[in-house]
Design a protein around this nucleic acid. Sequence first.
DNA 1: AATGAATGAGGCTTCATTCAT
DNA 2: AATGAATGAAGCCTCATTCAT
Lengths: 210, 210, 210, 210
Amino acid sequence: MTAPALEDPPLADLPAPKRERGRQRVAAIMDAAVEVFSEKGYDAATMTEIAARSSTAIGSLYRFFPSKEALADALLQRYAQHVSASLAELEAQVQRMSMEALAGALVDFMLALQSQRRFAVALVDARGGSDERRRRFRASARGGIARILQRAIDGLAPAKAHAMSVVLLHLLKGIAVAADETPAIQAVLTGEIRELVRLYLLAARREARG
Amino acid sequence: MTAPALEDPPLADLPAPKRERGRQRVAAIMDAAVEVFSEKGYDAATMTEIAARSSTAIGSLYRFFPSKEALADALLQRYAQHVSASLAELEAQVQRMSMEALAGALVDFMLALQSQRRFAVALVDARGGSDERRRRFRASARGGIARILQRAIDGLAPAKAHAMSVVLLHLLKGIAVAADETPAIQAVLTGEIRELVRLYLLAARREARG
Amino acid sequence: MTAPALEDPPLADLPAPKRERGRQRVAAIMDAAVEVFSEKGYDAATMTEIAARSSTAIGSLYRFFPSKEALADALLQRYAQHVSASLAELEAQVQRMSMEALAGALVDFMLALQSQRRFAVALVDARGGSDERRRRFRASARGGIARILQRAIDGLAPAKAHAMSVVLLHLLKGIAVAADETPAIQAVLTGEIRELVRLYLLAARREARG
Amino acid sequence: MTAPALEDPPLADLPAPKRERGRQRVAAIMDAAVEVFSEKGYDAATMTEIAARSSTAIGSLYRFFPSKEALADALLQRYAQHVSASLAELEAQVQRMSMEALAGALVDFMLALQSQRRFAVALVDARGGSDERRRRFRASARGGIARILQRAIDGLAPAKAHAMSVVLLHLLKGIAVAADETPAIQAVLTGEIRELVRLYLLAARREARG
DNA sequence: AATGAATGAGGCTTCATTCAT
DNA sequence: AATGAATGAAGCCTCATTCAT
């Protein structure tokens, strides 16, 4: 039972670059966009800079992404697929993982996302892209976590799993926040969070076994 | 020993409105600003809209707050004082509170901030106002929580208290996130977080007693 | 034969402050205005700053001078009277002054104006006050010089005197320009100009004697 | 040995329009800017009006000149090159010109600049553009005149040449002032100035031969 | 199809002037 | 009469987006 895809017909109306050239271009633009959105935030990022950083003419950029919001949405979508895939993978392995191991795995999952963290903050938590897309992103991530929890903890009520997924996701996001601190502090904070996740999972299992 | 004030001469140097009229105006502006910043985020919020929402001429707005950043900073400062005072109050009462009670108190503290939550996200977590003021705000809040923890848990190492304060603050912020959900879900999430806070505090005490 | 007054009914419509208080206030405003116009130029000068520098409420300033232009005009008028008076005085003494002495006197006349030079540049040469007032100011100054010339040089044709007055005034203004240089250079330039004025006067006399 | 160029890479760093179209646009903008700066002075001139007069969208104007000051500087630079070139040309011809001829040539040089006179007043003498550029402009013009004088007058001390250049330049500027008068008067004034320049040159030669 | 010049709405801010107190 | 708060037009500049080449 894998994660249900997040996807819509992938930006169907965009000229779906068949040529390899086009695909590279789109990738370059998206990478530059992640950079710029991360550094400046959605509002302060400019299409011109994204074009420049990806060595793309502004006109070409608009050929692939018809608006700033469309670009942000595409980014969000790509990120969602990435997250979705990661969670699906984790779900496949979780079967009888100890709570301890699961806590570690969840933290690792978040650490692996680090590179895109500023970007995620810029677009998911702030106002980039459409509300709709943001909502869907969140729902998908929560669903992924909830499924993992239900696999990991026998007898966990679906409602409880969902509630926990919201709290866990939020808690894990703290790892991203920690990235602003010095590496030493960062390590400490990451440890704290892992421990807290563990406590949470254990308590949930206790309750589920009730 | 109460929390050290965050304050500079409150809103220093701004031509502190002498007439009563002016004070109302300032309050109206700040309230409108909280609304607009909350809805749109710092960058997308416009001074024009803030002026309109508070029925203030743009020129008047600038009389009181000489720049968008100054306005954001003033808001942040007011919020910081509020938070600081709340934490100081909590600190005074924490003496031999049970971990359970403390968890509840911390959650309540956050719930009491609800009304300003989107605003806090918009200005503290995003890129609004001066970095400096944001940094100070965070340091103050963390310090307040850390002091509470040390009072509440005998033998808690200062470093541990500080690390916990960061994690706790983040966790509590989840209550704000919950505000986007339906009241029913919100209640559930708030409960989850309270429970998690309790688990965290208990574990910390266990460890402190070693 | 003294200089014809430049004056209009001195700002007739202004509430002609009868009280001593008012006169002082007006003087303070005008002095502050000279300062500010000098430092910033007409456009960049602000009524608010002029009010502040003269410790006058902005509302009061507007009571005495109904607009920025009116203030500039009043300044120009006062300056014109000053210049007019100086020239009239010089005219009275010029009778049989040597050309050399006259050259010196003219240069001294300009040096005496130094303190108001930046102001004059700001308002006379640039666009402060009304065109009309500027025109009148120039005409008056030229007339004053022309009369002096005719007294100093027997047989000087009126047309020639007028032409010379234009050139002389312009030349003398060079002394003001020199004020931007170091004192040493300033002295040299002043000397050059004095010498040139002398040459000019001598040549004119030669020609007048034909 | 010709005048050292004033130039930086002409209008460096401005996105030097490649297409022919762009070049025309830039020229139109600069011409309109000269007009507007001349009529209104630096401060009172508005970018909006300059755009309108050159039938340019405001955004386009800013594409070529990223700020009002940059535009003024570019104008000043163009003017400086023009002046520099004229003076270099004059320098090349001055070798054994009579003082009379030189006086005429200098006056002609100034007359040739007429078309840009108000502009020069607006930007060089007033507070437009960067101080630095103004300073450089003046230094260059003075240097150009000083070199001409030294070529024209054997044995002229460099210090004296420099002092004279300042005075001469100022005197010649009087020709521009004359442009406000009727053509008849203008002619008379131009004549006066030419004569005065001649007197000045002759006196200097006398002194140099001493 | 690719390019980058052109467009203009709209943002922040200033300041002359008015008007309620 | 004196004060200074209030007003809003207008200035500079940015940037998402369009369009001619």
